[in-house]
Design a protein around this nucleic acid. Structure first.
Lengths: 376, 376
DNA sequence: ATGACCAACTGTATCGTTGCAGTTTTTTCG
DNA sequence: CGAAAAAACTGCAACGATACAGTTGGTCAT
């Protein structure tokens, strides 16, 4: 391979590479008698990838015609289109993304904005994988744009909007009144959220049915005879705090059991903090005999606390946990788990943004998952 | 906000948006009397983001001058540079990526190529986070390009090379003779690998010291009096299979203990398979009293097998596991763990590609981590 | 004074693509 | 048969940035 590395004519000094020593793929080889004879030696990008110009030369057509043929425009003859397509396929033509983007503004990029906080217990992996799997069948690329929890969550979104860095955005960790959602809606920018909002504004989302989860979790505990329940909940500022709380409280009311407050920590706290907090709850006066955990990682801290106080899960108390994978099921089968399929969420979210970009109305792009729990 | 949404003159009908209904950020508003009077109403992108043209107009300089001033070129006056920089900062100028990319070929993108297989136990999360943290301080974006294990691992790399989709690539799961590495070296394309190769060719890499890990693991087992050891190893085709195997075998020799073969599965197998295989080993004739596990996820399957056969870790046998996080430490403190810091690997890999892009020689961009193990 | 030289700045062409406004050819029809 | 219309194709300009080859105006030595 490589073979004929024939230097182009004179002006071969267009190779760019600002700081780099190596040259890599794009080399911008350039030649062609610019003004001279109109129909001769039409440049033909040396070893480079084919462009419209290449195909135009090969077919004897104009660049515009080729462009329009590949777009299946109505004013191009059927046989011409066929011929162009054939040649394009033959030479492996792929439109230059920079060219398209410069001209049309279309980036063919979806930006996944995520909090570094989500790293805990790796929600990132499966969501990235899920999104990728959908995008793989499209011309879209996935750009991951993380922000540190300390910084403004709005910043990355604003960046994308201001620079037009992507055609669509996926965000997570939504709040009831979410500034990012407000901003993107105002600018009419395609996006989808992992989690709902509560602003009376329709937008694409995918969410796990946390209310259903919490309700089912309480029921499971009650069925095991537990009557003094508590909840390791999401941080108050996120939308799904309310959902989970509602489900929990409603079930508690419905089943007529007692609750023990456990408000000092939430699932965003460090495992150490959660463990410490739960341990002191367990050593205190009002001790729960059942706990619902809104996070797989948090559950690990709870387990540690429980065992540190000499209690036994399944005997002294029961734990129901939402989990992103089934590690817990392997290591602590006595914990009741309900799986949240994050990869599936990735699929849904990706499909939603794409549909939104294609112009589908937001109302049709909302989905909820849950209920199919895997008890152990 | 929004305020003065003054429509531009006549030719404002350039707004593009092929398929989309919504318009989003880039709108390509365009006007300006093209030929007429040379120094008048110079277009000034309506509400859009500023370009070099904007700054040129504001400063009264030429576009070229502005471009060169912002690049700190030597042929621009010091005070002019200062003035340009000021205005640029003032209007929030950010170079249009498509423009730069089209002209120079520089994408400002790093492509992370990963196997969907890696999803297991989420190595993806921390490596993405680690890379992002480094790139955050640069103009680089991170594009995630996964490939399904069934498909050709070479495909995504070839794609990047052929289309110039990125300035640098990060790959993992290297093989001793790695086709991707060969290809990128041949094309002199900047990249870094997570894992080494064995082709006698220098390239940037970061690797975990799997040999050291395995050696230390065996020592830890021997110190606990274990003498019949086995290894849950990486798949044979990956480079670190040899490393880990070497460390294991050398330690076994050095400490004069026995080994039990366990070759039917490797860490890429499903947890079910691993568990089944290990269970049948445990129920067989030659039973190990110590096992070294090359993967945190795999260890979970091993534990399950051990407990299913009524054995107790720490008593009947010991387990040493490499882990990416410390979940195991929380849930099975009796397992001896050694942490592989994947996020750190992300840092190193990102720094390595960037340095390579900047022209630093590969030999200087190789790093190994390990040894700082966290025993429990 | 006059040419050489330098510092500071600018115009033009170009990357690949596409919207727009043609142009050429063929067909249709009064 | 000639004009209008349709079909098929094409050139130009522009998106934003930059390499290159100037241009301008001044300083200095001869």
């Amino acid at each position: 391979m490589e073979g004929q590395a024939s230097m182009d004519e004179k002006t071969k000094t267009d190779g760019v590479r600002p700081t780099a020593t190596q040259s890599g793929a794009p080399s911008n080889a350039q030649s062609g008698l610019q003004t001279g004879n109109p129909q001769a030696a039409p440049h033909l990008p040396g070893n480079d990838r084919p462009t419209l110009k290449t195909i135009a030369y090969m077919t004897g057509l104009g660049i515009t015609t080729v462009s329009r043929a590949l777009k299946d425009a109505p004013d191009i003859g059927a046989d011409t289109k066929e011929r162009v397509r054939l040649v394009a396929r033959q030479v492996g033509y792929q439109p230059n993304r920079a060219g398209v983007r410069l001209r049309t503004g279309k980036t063919n990029v979806i930006s996944l904005v995520l909090s570094l906080e989500e790293e805990i217990m790796g929600l990132t992996s499966p969501i990235v994988v899920g999104i990728s799997e959908v995008l793989a069948a499209t011309p879209y690329h996935l750009v991951v744009t993380p922000y540190s929890p300390s910084r403004d969550a709005l910043a990355p979104v604003r960046y994308v909007l201001d620079t037009g860095a992507a055609d669509g955005v996926i965000i997570s960790r939504t709040e009831p009144k979410d500034a990012r959602v407000a901003l993107m809606l105002e600018r009419n920018f395609p996006f989808a959220t992992h989690g709902r909002t509560d602003m009376g504004l329709a937008h694409p989302y995918h969410d796990y049915d946390n209310e259903g989860f919490a309700y089912a979790a309480v029921r499971a505990l009650v069925e095991r005879g537990r009557r003094r329940l508590t909840l390791l909940q999401p941080p108050r500022h996120l939308t799904f705090h309310r959902h989970m709380r509602n489900g929990f409280d409603r079930a508690v009311r419905d089943f007529g059991v007692e609750t023990i407050p456990f408000d000092t920590v939430d699932i965003d706290h460090s495992l150490i903090d959660i463990r410490t907090a739960f341990e002191s709850l367990l050593r205190g006066g009002a001790v729960p005999d059942g706990i619902v955990s809104g996070s797989g990682a948090g559950t690990i801290a709870l387990i540690a606390a429980i065992e540190a106080t000499g209690r036994k899960i399944g005997t002294d108390l029961d734990v129901v946990s939402k989990v992103p994978s089934d590690f817990l099921g392997w290591l602590r089968p006595e914990v009741i788990t309900m799986k949240e399929d994050i990869r599936h969420a990735g699929h849904e979210l990706a499909k939603a943004v794409l549909a939104r970009i294609a112009g589908r109305p937001p109302e049709e792009l909302q989905s909820l998952s849950g209920l199919d729990k895997a008890k152990t």
